[in-house]
Design a protein around this nucleic acid. Structure first.
Length: 353
DNA sequence: CACTCGTGGCC
DNA sequence: TGGCCAAGAGT
């Protein structure tokens, strides 16, 4: 089967099976002349970086409700955006999202660049996202290569080279298939195929529109591709978090520095997280109670066991670290998940009720 | 190029 | 339970 026949088969499949997603202009509407909103495409693509559709849905709805366009987002407070992003992970995305919105609103008249090169120059927009926005929002014939596309190409052409070294090879194969017509629909079609049919485990080859030409299926090795280089084991780190509440109900919190883990997010004062046992580092000179419970949380490259200490703080407390926030000034949902877990432990503790 | 950077679901 | 995995980018 020729390349063009494969992309045509994929588009035909997409016409019948495209998922209905909140940020998507489906094939029928697009054929009728409906143009996607570049703001919605950009926002969804950034949220979808290394993140599942299921996890993104509610966040996308809350963001677009609160900030309907790029100018509104550009005018938002940093803390508001970080709080709304809390729980979605990879917080550099939120910091770069805001940077990007301010560049687009401030220097580009509120209009996103309509080329891959122009988009690539913006914060938080890399090779994948630049191509995706150019293709989906502006219908440019750019080749979109994400994890789905890598998997589909590796199987379709039975590429045995492991990732990440196989990346250039898979990108070249994906470029071969990218059609000049309907590149926006095509980009979403390949990714939908990877997300729903050509899945990582137990792919549904029986109902795949590309089952005939798929080399991996012919060889019976579809589920084994793409090959991947072995990963390093995750070490376990330890730390202590201090959840303090003042007599008037205010919580002792601190804003983490913009760089590094959980950068820019709200959190409980505490120790560094290292593989060695932590030494106590209380943020206020009072008696802290050990809840006896610890948060178990796994980050991308290490496991964390976080002991939780609690204390009732006096009205005249002057903490060495952090600042007091009234309950009305922060929502538990403003916390990244690991910090919300610590909060949940503290709230269940007898000494805090 | 290798490493950092979250989280939830799944088996 | 623990490793794997998801529409990657920045350094």
């Amino acid at each position: 089967m020729r390349d063009e026949e494969m992309s045509t088969a994929l588009l035909a499949w997409y016409d019948r099976h495209a998922r209905d997603l909140p940020w998507r202009v489906g094939p029928a509407a697009r054929a009728a002349g409906v143009q996607p909103d570049p703001y919605a495409v950009w926002l969804s693509e950034v949220m979808l970086q290394q993140t599942t559709v299921a996890a993104v849905r509610d966040y996308f709805h809350r963001f677009t409700t609160r900030w309907p366009d790029v100018a509104a987002l550009a005018g938002a407070e940093d803390a508001a955006v970080m709080g709304e992003w809390a729980g979605l992970g990879y917080y550099a995305r939120a910091r770069n999202l805001l940077k990007c919105a301010r560049v687009v609103a401030g220097e580009m008249g509120g209009r996103f660049p309509d080329t891959r090169e122009g988009l690539l120059a913006l914060p938080g927009i890399g090779p994948y996202t630049a191509a995706a926005i150019a293709a989906i929002a502006f219908d440019r014939a750019e080749t979109v290569v994400d994890g789905n596309v890598e998997r589909v190409m590796a199987r379709l052409f039975a590429v045995q080279t492991p990732l990440p070294p196989a990346k250039p090879e898979l990108t070249a194969l994906a470029a071969r298939l990218t059609p000049a017509r309907r590149p926006g629909d095509y980009a979403q079609a390949v990714m939908d195929l990877g997300a729903t049919i050509c899945t990582p485990k137990s792919p549904a080859c029986g109902i795949c529109p590309l089952r005939a030409p798929c080399a991996a299926r012919q060889q019976g090795i579809a589920a084994d591709l793409p090959r991947k280089q072995p990963k390093k084991p995750k070490p376990t780190r330890h730390g202590i978090a201090y959840v303090g509440r003042r007599a008037d109900g205010a919580w002792l919190l601190e804003r983490r520095p913009d760089r590094g883990l959980l950068g820019g997010m709200l959190g409980w004062p505490g120790t560094d997280w290292r593989e060695d046992p932590p030494a106590e580092a209380p943020p206020a000179a009072v008696e802290w109670r050990d809840t006896g419970a610890e948060v178990r949380h796994t980050f991308t490259h290490f496991h964390l066991r976080l002991s939780v200490r609690v204390a009732q703080l006096p009205a005249d407390c002057t903490p060495a670290r952090g600042a007091f926030l009234q309950p009305g000034d922060f929502r538990p949902s403003d916390l990244p998940t690991v910090m919300r877990k610590a909060f949940d432990i503290a709230r269940r503790d007898a000494g805090m009720r």
